[in-house]
Structures are given as structure tokens and as C-alpha cells.
């Protein structure tokens, strides 16, 4: 009998993943936090917490607020900075098995380029994910992501500073995400990641105080899944560049929705806070579902939506 092994590989431009499921930036630390809890080796990639050139302390507490079917966060990119990342975190990440995708964030174009250059030479990094969509920092982040021309400038700057595959993470907080996607895709990056959190806030009705120290934060979880799915659908229809779906994915059915909308791979974010194994469970469920369907490869499902 021929072995009809299911092909789960996902191709995101020059980045090839053994499995189409990754952890989302900021929700899985540097992998080490989950080493004793999760079958890390099963995952396609681990995407790190956002790394900046210099260490960042982040925002004042509270940084977390629970909301209906989701949460707000205003962490503010607390991270150890590039140097400490390379020294203390990257060696461990390399050993874990999954591809290593480093999420980067800068205040300026030059910051992004410098991060890309340094990580290019580091060894053991498989791709960069460029965060131009963080709602929780004063400069950089979202400011770049909401303007197609600026977004493309950042993408080009990173692209020219590294040989590594480059993914660009987009914000849903724009009128026309397809326009941003078109501009970024034209720079020749390998993938577009849709979406980062949506800007949101919550107020304690009794005290009158905002529930986040920073007042406004980013909304994530199942509450944003329809928005993320729509973004993936609009972007995948618009560009030839590979699209990665993220936003409220917590089970394999959610992942199937995103693949059908046009994503070639997915990321699992804050579902991990409810169950550390969420990403692995998504992957296993997806595999079983595809086997049941009788398809040969995961990629056959990509864009398979009946309109």
C-alpha cells in the first residue's frame, strides 16, 4: 500500500514550516516558560515576544483586563532588548525544535534595519516578524502600520537588511487593510500576518477608573476572530504573498476557518493563557480533520471557501 501521509508543510515565501501552527508573539514568551507544560516540538514555529534594540520596561499596572470573550492588554513591549535576547533567550529557543521567528519592533526605520541586520548574523533565527501594529507604544508600532507608504518603507528597510524571510504583521485598525497589504507585499516580503490586536478600552463603572494603567490597550481573543477572519480574507484575495492568520484562534475549527479564508498558516495567541497546550491541540485537531477529509496536504484547504 502506498503511504498517503498527510503533508502539513506550510510555505510562507522562503520560510517553510513543518506544521502550519505557530504561537503568537507576546503570548508564549520565549518558549522556555512553557517547556515543562507543552509538547513544543510539535509546533511549526515559536514567535517570540517583540524585541527592541534596547530593553524596555513596559507600561504601569494594570496591564491586563478581562473583557467579554477576550482580554485587553497594555504590556507596552516589555522585553530584555536585542543584546540580552541574543545572549539569554536565543540559544534555548534554537534547541526547542520549532522554527524560530523573532518579532521585532522599532521606534524608527533605522531601529528596524539595525534589528534585522543583527538577527541576520545571529544564526538559528528562521524568520523575522515585523511588528508595525502594536497599539501599546508611543512611537513606532501602529504609527507605521496605519499608513501604506510608511508600512512599505519599514518592510523594505527590513527586507534590505537581512537575508532572512520577512513577515510583516498588520493592524486591523485601518479603513482599508488591503491597501496596506498591497503596499507591503510590493516590497517583496515573504508573508503578511493578520492581525495584531484591536485598540480598545474598559472602565470600572463604580470607581470610574480605566481598567488599564495605559488607559487604551489591545483587544485579543475570540471576540476579535470575525475581524481577523475578514482581514485574512480581504488580504489573501488582494495579494499573492502568503497570509498568516491570527486572532481568536483556540480550536481546530477556528484554524480551518482561517485556512479556508486564505491563510496558509495560523498563530494561536491568548488561547494559550486558558490552556498552555492550545496551539498543539489546534494542530492535532487540524491533522485529524484533514485526514478525515481525505486530502493529501493541508495546503489544499487554503482558500477553499464556497462563495
Amino acid at each position: 500500500m502506498v503511504d498517503l501521509e498527510l503533508d502539513m508543510r506550510a510555505r510562507i515565501g522562503r520560510l517553510e514550516l513543518a506544521k502550519p501552527v505557530m504561537t503568537a508573539s507576546g503570548t508564549f514568551g520565549f518558549g522556555e516558560e512553557y517547556r515543562s507544560l507543552v509538547d513544543l516540538g510539535a509546533l511549526g514555529a515559536i514567535v517570540t515576544k517583540g524585541i527592541s534594540l534596547r530593553p524596555r520596561a513596559g507600561n504601569p499596572a494594570p496591564r491586563i483586563a478581562e473583557t467579554p470573550c477576550g482580554m485587553l492588554n497594555a504590556v507596552g513591549l516589555e522585553n530584555p532588548g536585542l543584546e540580552a535576547f541574543l545572549r539569554d533567550k536565543l540559544p534555548g529557543l534554537r534547541e526547542m525544535g520549532p522554527a524560530v521567528v523573532v518579532n521585532i519592533l522599532g521606534d524608527t526605520l533605522e531601529d528596524y534595519a539595525a534589528l534585522a541586520r543583527a538577527l541576520d548574523g545571529a544564526g538559528g533565527v528562521d524568520a523575522l516578524e515585523v511588528n508595525i501594529s502594536c497599539p501599546n507604544v508611543e512611537r513606532g508600532g501602529l504609527a507605521f502600520g496605519t499608513d501604506p507608504a510608511l508600512a512599505a518603507e519599514v518592510a523594505a528597510a527590513v527586507r534590505e537588511s537581512t537575508r532572512l524571510p520577512v513577515l510583516v504583521k498588520l493592524t486591523p485598525d485601518v479603513t482599508d487593510i488591503a491597501a496596506v497589504a498591497r503596499a507591503v507585499a510590493a516590497t517583496g516580503v515573504d508573508g503578511l500576518v493578520c492581525i495584531n490586536t484591536l485598540r480598545g478600552m474598559a472602565i470600572d463603572p463604580l470607581s470610574g477608573r480605566p481598567r488599564l494603567g495605559k488607559v487604551i490597550g489591545g483587544l485579543s481573543g475570540p471576540a476579535i476572530r470575525p475581524v481577523a477572519l475578514r482581514a485574512v480574507f480581504e488580504v489573501a484575495r488582494e495579494v499573492d504573498t502568503a497570509v498568516v492568520g491570527v486572532g481568536g484562534i483556540g480550536c481546530w475549527q477556528d484554524a480551518v476557518e482561517f485556512l479556508r479564508a486564505g491563510a496558509v498558516a495560523v498563530q494561536v495567541g491568548c488561547a494559550t493563557f486558558r490552556d498552555p497546550s492550545a496551539a498543539v491541540m489546534v494542530l492535532r485537531g487540524l491533522e485529524d480533520f484533514l485526514k478525515g477529509l481525505g486530502v493529501r496536504s493541508c495546503s489544499q484547504l487554503v482558500g477553499a471557501v464556497e462563495l
Binding site: T27, E33, Y34, G58, R63, M71, N73, V75, C270, F273
Partner: peptide
């Protein structure tokens, strides 16, 4: 105490800005 999401040190959601730098309450 502080608001927590992961409890394992992964999300930086429970950090307090102490004199010595940010410290995660959970780890």
C-alpha cells in the same frame, strides 16, 4: 497580587515597575 493572564511568565501582563526594574509577580 496583580492581574494575570498566563501565570507562567510568558505574557508580561503582571509586571510591576519596581525600583530594580520590571518584575513579574507570577514568576
Amino acid at each position: 497580587e496583580n492581574r494575570m493572564a498566563c501565570g507562567t511568565g510568558a505574557c508580561m501582563g503582571c509586571s510591576l515597575l519596581l525600583a530594580g526594574g520590571p518584575r513579574r509577580v507570577c514568576v
